[in-house]
Design a protein around this nucleic acid. Structure first.
Length: 293
DNA sequence: CGTGGCCCCTGTGGGC
DNA sequence: TGCCCACAGGGGCCAC
């Protein structure tokens, strides 16, 4: 479920407590969410790849993935899938074990009093997410990050135009492809297309340079505002302290089919594109010839 | 190769 | 009040 804004909001909130810290222990309570450097679910997992005894260099993000970079190279890539989240609390806080908690890291923080530790938990009911271990930069590049397109927060109009020009898919489908733009998912694809006044069923290759430019601007601005708001909590998304993101109330089309377009008052339509629910304004976003297909 | 379809999994909400 | 089905912020793999 989480898209770039949700993941970035989480990253920003775990970074201060974790960057520079050292991982004391990692407990795996569900092995099959962990992938070794070859992408396999099976096999013995060296404790050091889970970070035990190592220092956290930085807390990064690429597209929808959180990257815990470890001193000495490589790191831990966390994909939240549809229902995943990260919970971060002081270890001293006593609380009931959350359902579907699959990994727990105990980390000595550097921005806290010496001796205090934090507990980072990976929780994912549907288990579409997972934790991928990388020995070095090569592992990160090969399997996890190499195929991603430009970051959604920085996507430039000309780059988006070129990437859409080369596809036969409709623009909505292309935006969901992480090799076109990294970080856009179903919510922000619909929001960006509406803001740019482009129908989701338009063939990607039919967009003009000007339209691709509008779309790139919309993507950057909407993702940016959503990050600042802590992401969209529709149902599952939570920040690491358990609180909700605030952007759901500011969505203009996603989840609003049957309501009116805030720009022109037309009733918003909904259909399925690439098996994903898609909402748009039939007035602001002109349908292409032959729509519906 | 690009693309569409199917599958992975649990929880929930709506219709009957 | 159930029960069942459809659907949910994603993406990997497969056959064309």
């Amino acid at each position: 479920m989480p898209e770039l804004p949700e993941v970035e909001a989480i990253r920003r909130r775990i970074e201060p407590a974790l960057a520079g810290g050292s991982i004391q222990r990692c407990i795996v309570t569900r092995r099959d969410v962990v992938r070794d450097p070859l992408g396999r679910r099976t096999g013995r997992i060296p404790r050091s790849l889970l970070g035990e005894g190592r220092r956290l260099d930085s807390i990064d993000r690429r597209g929808k993935q959180v990257i815990l970079r470890l001193t000495g190279g490589g790191g831990i890539v966390i994909r939240l899938g549809m229902s995943g989240r990260l919970d971060l609390r002081p270890s001293s806080l006593r609380r009931r074990t959350p359902d579907h908690r699959h990994l727990t890291w105990t980390i000595r923080s550097v921005d806290r009093d010496p001796g205090t530790t934090m507990r980072l938990e990976f929780i994912d009911p549907r288990r579409f997410g997972g934790v991928h271990l990388a020995r070095d930069e090569q592992d990160l590049e090969d399997r996890l990050l190499g195929r991603l397109g430009p970051e959604g927060l920085q996507i430039a109009g000309p780059a988006l135009f070129e990437r859409l020009a080369g596809t036969r898919r409709v623009v909505k489908t292309a935006l969901l492809d992480q090799s076109v733009v990294a970080g856009v998912g179903n919510i922000y694809a619909d929001e960006s297309l509406h803001a740019a006044r482009i129908h989701p069923g338009r063939p990607g290759s039919s967009l003009t340079r000007s339209e691709a430019g509008r779309l790139a601007t919309a993507i950057r601005e909407i993702l940016g505002r959503a990050v600042e708001a802590g992401g969209s909590t529709i149902r599952d998304h939570r920040l690491p302290d358990g609180s909700e993101g605030g952007f759901a109330a500011r969505l203009t089309v996603y989840g609003r089919a049957g309501s009116t377009c805030e720009r022109c008052g037309t009733i918003l339509e909904e259909s399925r594109i690439s098996a994903r629910s898609t909402t748009w304004c039939p007035t602001c976003q002109h349908a292409p010839e032959g729509w519906p297909p």
